[in-house]
Nucleic acid binder design. Structure first.
Lengths: 79, 79
DNA sequence: ATATAAAGTGTACTATATAGCACTTTTTAA
DNA sequence: TTAAAAAGTGCTATATAGTACACTTTATAT
């Protein structure tokens, strides 16, 4: 997952859960400014920050082999 | 994936590929010290750092829904 | 056993992520 | 169309990640 898609995943998941940036910031313990910067593509969050956000959203950061399947190259069927 | 397991994944993958920390550092453009700190559990790398390392190892950082299946809870069958 | 390679650590500087505040812009409802 | 909510931004202080160098410890061969 490239940077953009990670951001997109977080944003979409937050939207699906109907959580505002402000609420997610509070729930995760991440500063609102940090979340704003990340979602607007201007951040380079630390792993811990990413994990805090992911936790609240029911997501988890993981490492996968690249190209496990050729499916989903278009970015469809994303979480 | 909790922090420890991410580290384990990177280490194991590096071992499988027979790449030393030094070589991985060079290939990825990440400082050797940074890699050492991360692998020894004392780091909190930024997303970009993690991605640089992952790239060289043929891995990718991704976000998954937690508990997609109950399988692999023991940490077996890891990449 | 011991030489060599690989991994880990102390110190210290620089770059930058985090964070809060106040403000602007954009989106969403009424 | 306009008021309210949500998202984005400039500025700035502080904390800490990234980095290099020199060194120690641990693994690995021979």
């Amino acid at each position: 997952m490239h940077h953009e898609k990670l951001i997109k995943t977080i944003k979409e998941r937050r939207d699906v859960m109907q959580v505002t940036q402000e609420t997610l910031a509070e729930l995760s313990g991440v500063g609102l400014r940090t979340l704003k910067q990340f979602e607007s593509g201007k951040g380079n969050p630390t792993l811990i920050t990413l994990q805090k956000l992911s936790d609240v959203l029911g997501l988890e950061v993981c490492l996968q082999l690249k190209n496990i399947t050729k499916a989903n190259e278009t970015g469809e069927n994303t979480i």
